[in-house]
Amino acid sequence: MNLGFRHDVQTLKWARSTTFWLAVFLSLGSMPRAVRAQDMSFDIDEAESAGGAAKDKGKSKGKPAAKEKEAPAEETSAEAGGGGDVLTELTAGGSKKEAEPTEGGLPREKEIAEKIYAVQRMYVLRRGRFEVAPSLAFTVNDQFVTHNALAGSLNYWVTNVLAVGANVLWHQGLESESALDFTVRRSTRLAVPITEYQLGANLNFTYVPVYGKFELFNDSIFQWDSYIVGGVGVIRTRPVAEIDPSVRTFSFDWRVSFNAGIGLRVFMTRWLSVFGELRDYMYLEKLENLKVALGSGTPGSRTDTATWIDPSSTLTHNVMMHVGITMFFPFTFEYRYPK
């Protein structure tokens, strides 16, 4: 029987849509197509076993001796290839066809000594690997202007659950003003000061507290994890002249920003995954002054740039949905076992 994943998941038709939400669904909905077969067992030791030999030793104290013997002594490490899979390793050697001994012309029964690990290994080890993650980012909380962005991040995994890294977002040229801004202005004569972003850059920590497996119709299994991310950085913004556009123009300026978010990563191979992430970028924004000074050419007048910006700052939350892929480098890694 073939336990590989069946290509029976229908491709989502929403790919033809031109809306952002449907684009998000497309990338998320196609995840199961390339899932990886895995065992469904969960054990605390599963994570620990990947943490190195020292950890494994400690965790394996209570294991039956017979099971310990199942892993050959000479195999103190095993390489996990980029396109490989645990099932492949479980059945290593099984594909070699040998001449079957016979008894009286009939195949002689033999004992199958298949490699089955006492404790299932983590599907992907991240410690010491780099992660590159290009993504598309969409504003989800701003009713008036969407600060869409092309984003990229680079992380280094210090442990299997903790990474440090940086990300960059490019907004300029990808933003758009919503119809609400126009209709509110037209119907109520209320101008809502909005801003434009150019770019953002952040240093981040990522921690993985939640991980799991899903099976598809009891046929295939894929791995995922959920993470929290947070950091500090800068964002470059400027007000869009709405109150007095005939006079006022604004230049981009730097603001300090903080960010926090949660994400979901689904592994397609040991080095490739797709992810969705909801992150709140928080910063103090300088908005356009709602008051227009009188006169011109003198300090404090309408043409004085000092009067164009509201003197107070506004705490702004730019909540963004990132959708993208992550690639781990190097592509391969080694499992370590107790000696």
Partner: peptide, 24 residues
């Protein structure tokens, strides 16, 4: 999004087509 969605499909999925023998 379509490119990203398709990038991980196709050939990579075939890596799981492992013929399991023995007790499994």
């Amino acid at each position: 999004a379509a490119v990203m969605a398709l990038a991980g499909t196709g050939p990579t999925a075939h890596a799981q087509d492992v013929a399991v023998q023995g007790p499994l």
